[in-house]
């Protein structure tokens, strides 16, 4: 008689617990999109020379979650639960960097739609650090390698490190600061490509003296 009463109580209580759990309202995370300023107009990749963004490799801690990362103490980072990137960071970064390089260089840069075999040069990007800090800064450390596309030969390797202050407190300010860092990184990458672009342009104007694009200036 007593056992029957306990079992009946349990059967009634379990759905109540489930309903109670589901009734709680979870916190809504804020999602950030890494796109920068929307590009206006249209362009064509230079016929004589085309750059393509190849591999974009991020440090594993940036891919272990989609939350924005803040360094709370030296060597200690925390990924935000309520402030996340709207898409995987490598995908967003590829779009952002490619757009910004093209803006700085004045040429379209491949890296998503066109056939990689048509590129003359490939840029492989490695980002080892991209996060904010509790001291009000955002920092980046990155490197890129310029390769000959057809045989993957490395021509040159560059490094870039920067720290900028957050324009405002909070994660919106962190996103703005990281966009600023990626923009500066893209400008540096574009500068490193410029001699090759100019050489290709001069070769296009003088077809008789056209040199092999792989010949570094």
């Amino acid at each position: 008689m007593r056992m029957t009463t306990v079992a009946a109580s349990t059967v009634l209580l379990l759905p109540l617990l489930l309903l109670g759990g589901c009734s709680s309202t979870p916190s809504e995370p804020t999602l950030y999109l890494l796109r920068g300023q929307p590009a206006e107009g249209s362009g064509e990749v230079a016929a004589s020379l085309r750059f393509g963004l190849g591999r974009v490799i991020l440090a594993p801690y940036l891919l272990s979650s989609t939350g924005l990362v803040v360094e709370t103490a030296p060597g200690e980072v925390r990924s935000a639960r309520l402030h996340r990137w709207a898409e995987p960071l490598d995908a967003g970064m590829r779009w952002f960097v490619r757009t910004e390089i093209a803006r700085s260089l004045g040429h379209e840069v491949g890296g998503g739609l066109s056939d990689v075999m048509d590129w003359d040069y490939t840029i492989d990007l490695y980002v080892g650090r991209l996060h904010g800090s509790m001291s009000g800064d955002a920092m980046i450390e990155a490197a890129w390698v310029l390769r000959v596309a057809h045989d993957d030969t490395a021509l040159r390797e560059y490094r870039f490190g920067k720290r900028v202050p957050l324009p405002q407190a909070g994660y919106a300010g962190l996103v703005a600061a990281e966009e600023d860092l990626l923009r500066q990184l893209s400008a540096q990458i574009a500068e490193s490509l410029r001699p090759y672009a100019e050489q290709a342009m001069s070769a296009a104007e003088d077809p008789d003296g056209a040199a092999e694009p792989a010949g570094a200036p």
Partner: peptide, 21 residues
Amino acid sequence: PNALIFNRKYKDDPRPPAGSQ
């Protein structure tokens, strides 16, 4: 482990301060 049933109580994300310009 009970996060499937109960909403998880997260600590508030650390709020990065604004940088000194």
